[in-house]
């Protein structure tokens, strides 16, 4: 029982990671109707910005501020240079451009920071806390808390605020939204900035747990994408539920079925969910909205 609890705790941590990246997919999709496959590289870039901030002598808290500011600027530049020139182009053109960006970012990072893994400090000790026989890293608790807070804020933003309504209006019909007086370009730019900040937060949270490596974002990208589909693509609650569900199921499968098929188990789960609930766990609401 103790080991099962330990597995669930560790699975939830990985699930938070999937959920945070899945949230980026959802946010962009809900507003501009495209899928940003550079999401993993945004996470990586934030972690490398953090390493640079520490290396120039900033304290950890100021490094966080630096990274969030840098990612906000990067998010604006991203939409200005990549999305804006291609807006109105076919869906496939835009997502291929995001894949191109991901390749460029990974290689730029290799040129600037080198291929070797790097370290990024944590606010907390690396010694685990013993909670009823279950060992939990303080950083993992931090990841869980921040993930829940970020999801709550994004959910409230989208569903309870005027900005959120504007974003949904832009997503559903940009031309009508423009006629209604909504500054569509500003809303889109704001979404990309918000998405980039969220990716920055994910990078800062993950960096002390994983090493800062070139593949730290891309290695979990596919599972994060799967998590967002399991939850119901386009749904904020779906992203977190899908992420946590996938994180827990794959770790339990790896432990009690076979570790040799850990990745396979995750994707079998995805297939099963799609077969049983084609629209995902929260797919109905997404369908209604879109």
């Amino acid at each position: 029982m103790q080991q099962l609890t330990q597995l669930i705790v560790n699975g939830l941590t990985m699930g938070c990671i999937y959920a945070l990246i899945a949230l980026g997919f959802v946010l962009i999709y809900r507003t501009v109707g495209v899928i940003n496959f550079a999401q993993g590289e945004l996470v990586m870039l934030a972690a490398y910005f953090g390493v640079t901030a520490i290396s120039i002598g900033l304290s950890l808290i100021w490094a966080y501020v630096f990274v969030i500011a840098a990612m906000a600027i990067f998010g604006y530049l991203f939409q200005w240079m990549i999305y804006y020139p291609l807006r109105g182009k076919p869906f496939i053109t835009i997502i291929i451009s995001t894949i191109g960006v991901s390749i460029i970012l990974q290689n730029l990072a290799r040129i600037i920071w080198g291929p070797a893994p790097l370290m990024f400090p944590s606010f907390f000790s690396l010694k685990p806390l013993n909670i009823g026989g279950v060992l939990v890293q303080p950083q993992n608790i931090f990841v869980f808390v921040v993930t829940v807070v970020l999801f709550s804020l994004v959910y409230l933003l989208l569903s309870k605020t005027m900005i959120g309504h504007k974003m949904q209006a832009v997503a559903q019909d940009p031309e009508t939204a423009k006629l209604m007086g909504i500054k569509v370009d500003q809303v889109v730019a704001g979404v990309f900035v918000l998405n980039s900040i969220l990716a920055g937060a994910a990078g800062l949270l993950l960096a002390p747990i994983f090493l800062v490596t070139l593949d730290m974002g891309s290695s979990v990208l596919m599972k994060s994408f799967s998590a967002s589909i399991i939850g119901g693509f386009g749904s904020v609650p779906g992203a977190i539920v899908g992420g946590l569900f996938l994180g827990v199921v794959e770790i339990l499968g790896a432990r009690y079925i076979s570790s040799h098929f850990k990745d396979g188990i995750a994707f079998v789960v995805l297939l099963l969910v799609l077969l049983i609930i084609p629209k995902g766990l929260f797919g109905e609401r997404v369908n209604e909205r879109s």
Partner: peptide, 19 residues
Amino acid sequence: VSAPSTDKDYSAQLLELQA
């Protein structure tokens, strides 16, 4: 136990070894 090199979390494998 085994893990692909892209994997980041080895707790399932390590707990199996521990068990």
